[in-house]
Simulated scan of single mutants.
Amino acid sequence: MAEQSEDSGRTTETLMEKISEKIHAHDSSSSSSDSDSDNEKSAAASVKAKIYRIFGRERPVHTVFGGGKPADVFLWRNKKISAGVLGTATAVWVLFELLEYHLLTLACHILILSLAVLFLWSNVHTFINKSRPRIPEVHIPEEPFLQVASALRMEINWVFKILRDIASGRDLKKFLVVISSLWVMSIVGSWCNFLTLFYIIVVLLHTVPVLYEKYEDKVDSCAEKVMKEIKKQYALFDAKVLSKIPKAAFKAKRV
C-alpha cells in the first residue's frame, strides 16, 4: 500500500511538472511574440517616420485642411455638398464669363421673377380662399456674419505677420520664395480675369487634395526628388551668387 501511494504521488508530481513546463513554454512564446510584435511596430513606425511628406506634413490631409466642414467639402466626404459647391461655381462662371452676364442684371432679373411669382401666387390664393396668404419675413442673422468677419480678420492679421517677418530681412530663402510666388501669380493674373482665376482655384481645391490623398505615396516620392534637385540648384546659386554679396560692408553701413 505504501508503495502504491508513493507511485501515485510520483505520478502526480510528474503531471504537475509537465503542466508547469507547458505553462512556462506558453508564457515564453507569448512574451517572445509580444516582443516581436513590438519590434515590428517600432520598425514600422521608424520607417513611416522616414517617409518624406510635402511641406514636412506629419498629419493626415483632412487634419491639414482644418478637419471640419471645409475639409469634408474639399476631400469629398459628403459628395452632395461638394458637387453642389462645384456646380454652383461652374454655373456662376458660365453665366458671367461665357454668357457675359452682369451681376446687377442678374440680381434685377432674379428679383423681377421672384416678385412676379409671389404677386401671382398671392392673387390666386386670395381668389380661391378669399384670404391673403402670409408671406414669410426674411431676416439675416447677425452671428454668422460676425463669425465670418472674425475669421477673416484673424487670417488677414496672420498674412500681415508673415509679410512683416519676410520684410525684416531675416530669411533670404523665404524672401526669394515669396517674391517668385507673387511674380508667378501676377503672370497668371494677366492671363485671365479675377472670376476665371477664382473659378480655377475652386476647381483645384476640389480636385488636387482628393487626388493627393488617393495617390499620397507616389506624389510624395516624386516631390522628394524635386525638392532634392531644388536644394541642389539653390546650393549652387548660393555658392556662385549669394555668397559673393558683401554682407559685412552692408552691416557696417547700417551700424
Rank of each mutant, 00 (worst) to 15 (best):
H26F: 10
Y52E: 00
E3C: 13
E142P: 10
V202N: 01
M16A: 12
K253S: 06
C222V: 03
A2E: 08
E21G: 13
I112T: 11
P141D: 01
Y215M: 01
K225E: 04
H102L: 14
V61D: 01
E97T: 07
F237E: 03
E224R: 02
D34Q: 06
L103G: 03
S30C: 05
T90S: 10
Y101K: 12
F237N: 07
E40H: 11
L205Y: 05
I140F: 14
I54W: 02
S32M: 05
Y234G: 05
H109F: 11
K214L: 11
P144E: 01
V203Y: 03
L211P: 10
P246I: 03
F55I: 10
S243G: 03
K69E: 04
C192V: 12
V255P: 03
L195W: 01
H62P: 05
S5P: 05
L197K: 00
F194G: 10
S150K: 05
L204I: 13
R134W: 09
S186N: 10
A149E: 09
I140K: 08
M154S: 03
I230R: 02
E6L: 04
T12W: 08
N39Y: 11
D72W: 01
A249I: 15
H139L: 13
K251F: 09
K79E: 15
V255W: 05
A44T: 13
E229L: 12
F96I: 07
V47A: 10
A235E: 13
R57I: 08
G68I: 02
A45G: 07
H102M: 12
I245Y: 07
H102T: 03
S5A: 15
V177G: 04
P60N: 10
S181F: 15
Y101N: 12
N39V: 13
M1V: 11
W121G: 13
A25R: 06
L95D: 08
S33M: 05
T14K: 11
S46T: 15
T105I: 12
V241S: 01
G68Q: 00
D36N: 13
E137F: 15
F74I: 10
K48V: 09
T11F: 14
D72N: 08
V203A: 02
T196P: 00
H102K: 11
A149Q: 08
V188P: 12
D165M: 00
F74C: 10
K174G: 01
V124A: 06
R57G: 09
T63V: 06
W158S: 11
M185Y: 03
D238Q: 09
L99R: 07
I51G: 15
A43H: 06
A83P: 12
I156F: 12
T11R: 09
L176E: 01
S186P: 15
L98E: 06
M185T: 05
W158R: 02
G56F: 04
V188Y: 04
A223W: 03
S181E: 14
I179D: 02
